[in-house]
């Protein structure tokens, strides 16, 4: 029983990273209608960026731990920076192709993903070597019914849930949310109604990039190692999460992320190779059985 509970904690920990990343994935798809395969690389940029920004704040650290204020600054700068890069990527690579066939945008996204991985790798001060991630939060361990859970894990899980709720409300209740839904429904009509499409899409990408950075920081806090390749596997898994929950649906992304995380941990408990493959098995099964995903509505248009 304690073991199962412990696995559940691990599953939620992994699932919250997938969920946070999948939220951005699914939002970009829902509003812009493109699959941004470079989304996983935003996570890498967020985590690597945090590493370098933390280095700048090095003088404030005491015994390798940073004061709360510095941690807040580091996270804020890294998040805004990654959001900015996401906006830049959209403006440079995706915007000119917005009215071209979807396939072209998809191929461009693959290219952007390769660029974002390999450009930092080629930079001499970054390079391909993995780096130890600084300790931003000093975890406290609690014991719940025989299973141990750390404060970092609790923060991550709560953060994923709160972010999901906030995004859901943002899209449903606010003015910018209404504009997003309008753009999602019909770009041309929204434009005729006086909505600045470029601005709405930029904001969408900014939120997606910022969320990717936050998930990167979370991920690197529990698995304290950052490298330029870390985004590809997590990007794939968050894509599976988004599809599982119903791509385009914010609540679905969160649900999909947690389901995938827990499924991976329990599958690994049965057989580690099965655990490695379970993400892809889920993707295939969901596409065969319910292509719209758990929360998704059936629409005619598909990529």
């Amino acid at each position: 029983m304690a073991t199962i509970l412990q696995y559940l904690v691990y599953g939620l920990q992994l699932g919250s990273v997938y969920a946070l990343l999948a939220l951005g994935y699914t939002m970009v798809y829902g509003i812009v209608g493109m699959i941004n395969t470079a989304h996983g690389d935003f996570l890498m940029i967020g985590a690597l960026g945090t590493y370098f920004i933390a280095k700048l704040f090095d003088s404030m650290s005491i015994d390798g731990t940073y004061p709360m204020l510095a941690v807040g600054c580091i996270i804020l700068i890294a998040t805004v920076m990654t959001g900015g890069i996401a906006v830049g990527v959209e403006a440079i690579a995706y915007r000119p192709l917005r009215n071209k066939p979807r396939m072209i945008a998809l191929i461009t996204a693959v290219g952007v993903s390769m660029f974002l991985t390999n450009f930092p790798r080629a930079l001499p001060f970054i390079g391909p070597n993995p780096r130890p991630f600084p300790t931003l939060f000093t975890p406290k361990t609690f014991n719940v019914l025989g299973a141990s859970i750390t404060s970092t894990q609790i923060i991550m899980i709560v953060l994923a849930a709160v972010t999901m709720l906030a995004l859901d409300r943002l899209v449903a209740k606010t003015k910018i949310g209404a504009q997003m839904r309008a753009v999602s429904m019909d770009k041309d009509a929204a434009s005729l109604m006086g909505i600045n499409i470029d601005k709405v899409i930029s904001i969408t990408f900014f939120i997606g990039g910022a969320l990717a950075a936050v998930s990167g920081i979370c991920y690197a806090s529990v698995y304290p190692q950052v490298e330029v390749y870390m985004g590809s596997w997590l990007g794939n898994m968050s894509f599976v999460s988004a599809v599982l929950g119903g791509i385009g649906d914010i609540r679905g992304a969160m649900l999909g992320g947690f389901i995938l995380g827990i499924a991976q941990i329990f599958a690994t408990a049965i057989n580690s190779t099965f655990g490695y493959a379970v993400g892809f098995i889920i993707l295939i099964v969901i596409l065969l059985v319910k292509p719209a995903g758990i929360m998704g509505k059936v629409t005619i248009e598909k990529v």
Binding site: Q6, Q225, W233
Partner: peptide, 9 residues
């Protein structure tokens, strides 16, 4: 995969 928690547990 950077999560070895299950195997190690």
């Amino acid at each position: 995969v950077k999560d070895y928690n299950v195997q190690l547990t």
